[in-house]
Structures are given as C-alpha cells and as structure tokens.
Amino acid sequence: MAVKDFIRERFFPHIWCAGCGHGIVLNSLLRAVESLGMSKNEIVMVSGIGCSSRISGYLDFHTLHTIHGRALAFATGVKLSRPELNLIVPMGDGDALAIGGNHFIHAARRNIDITAIVMNNRIYGMTGGQFSPLSGCGIMATTAPYATVDQGFDVVELSRAAGATFVARSTTYHVQQLTKLLREAILHEGFSVVEVLTQCPTYFGRRNKQGGAVEMMNWFKDHTTPVGSKAKAENPDLIERGIFVQKDLPEYCKAYDQVIERAQKGK
C-alpha cells in the first residue's frame, strides 16, 4: 500500500503552519505503518485537543478525536474492549503531560499496549503560544512575558519511572530514525512512548529568537546525540536520541485475560 492510501486526501491542505514539524511526524508515522503492512481496519488512532491532535482527522484509520488531555483514557477503553486492535495516540506536550499527565503515567503503569507519541514543541500552539510543562525555564511565551520560572519534565525519565516498557526519543530532523523508532514502538507489546522534538516556528521559535523552521531543525541536529554517545559524555547538555527503555513485562489486556480465566474457573 502506498503512503498516500493512508490519508484522507480531501482534508488537505492541513491546518498546520508553514514550517511546523507536525507534518514531518505524520510523514514518519505513515512510513512506519506502511512498513508494517497492517490493515487500516486494525488501527485506531485516538487524539486529544491541540495542533498535534488534528493528525487523526487526516488519516484513514478508525479515528477518535476526543477531549483535551484524555486521549489515553479513551484509548484504554478501546484497547481493553478490543485488544486485537492497534492503538496509536498522538499528543501534544500540554495535552499529554499537563492536563493529561495523570492518564499518561497510569497508562504507562498498566503497561497497556498503546503507542503514545508526544509531539513536543514546548508550547501550546492552538491557543496561541502559552508555555507548557515541557517548555522549561527561561522560555518566553504569551503567558510568560517575563520568561518562565517553571521547570520542565523530562519525558523519557517520566515515562521510565511510570513503567513504560518502551521509551524512545527523536526529532523532526532525524526522520529516518524517527520512522524506525515509531515502527518499533508500534510493534512493541506494552505501553510505548516516543517523544518527538518538533518545531513550532510560529509561537516558540519567533518568541524565543530561534529563527524559522530550518534554524530550529538545525538546532535539533546540533543539540542532540545518539544514546550513550561519546559526545554526550563530553557535553552533558546534549539531548540524547534513540531507545532508552525496551523490556518485556506482562501487557495489561493479556494480564486481564488471566482475571477472566480465574473468574470463570470458580463458576
């Protein structure tokens, strides 16, 4: 199947700004899905609210565009009631980790087989550029005119601590790696998280004097390094890319099958 067969062409052009990284994530995701040879009927995409969440409308899967922050909770209901389906949940940084932070850590704790993609542009785009829990300190935003004093989350460490069994990170610059990581995440049986550093030139880049999309992507190139590289040892400020966690633990729906078995044995 060609990549084009996965999209709902009549809804293009998309709503994202010129230079936005979300289209690159969409591209990588489609290539990953294509390489897996899955039927479109087996894939359910659940999203919340925000720029990134609009990704679901453009794709020819079963798509559930829900409410702000709760995509993983909806996805948990879909997955547990029909475990044979593949659940992909693209989220923005605010969607996933501010309003949806509780659902995020609990989905990870259960190790339910859902692929969570955190499209991290460090800003609330759809509402016009407010800081997010991933902005970090010293960031200018429409709700931080004197720069943020809030610390940011580290998505990788948070996911690891919460119990996710697959955790990876890449950027919109590293599209080959991103496609590979998304593919592995979808294949992984358990809760998988892929954090994608993506650019919002309109609100984040402009306000923080990071230039346009090209400069922002160059920044991803220059400030990231493969996991465990020598460069990281020499420069701790570099952001690591790659797979951080990959382990086999009982998946939630499979584990629940045991509950059913136990309940029916007593009958």
């Binding site: 829900t66 909770a73 879909v78 009631s81 029916q264």
Partner: peptide, 27 residues
C-alpha cells in the same frame, strides 16, 4: 469477568467516563 466482560479501575472519574466511551465504540 465471569460473563467475559471487562472491568477496569481507572485513575479517576474523568478517565472512567472516557474509557467507557472508547469501549462503546467497539460495539
């Protein structure tokens, strides 16, 4: 589970409401 159904204790009331909506969509 005795009748082949699923019970899940969610992290809060919001998530519970969302999860049943997701499950309803699978029929």
């Amino acid at each position: 589970p005795q009748v082949g159904g699923k019970f899940i204790q969610m992290e809060d009331e919001i998530a519970s409401m969302c999860a049943i909506i997701g499950a309803s969509l699978t029929g």
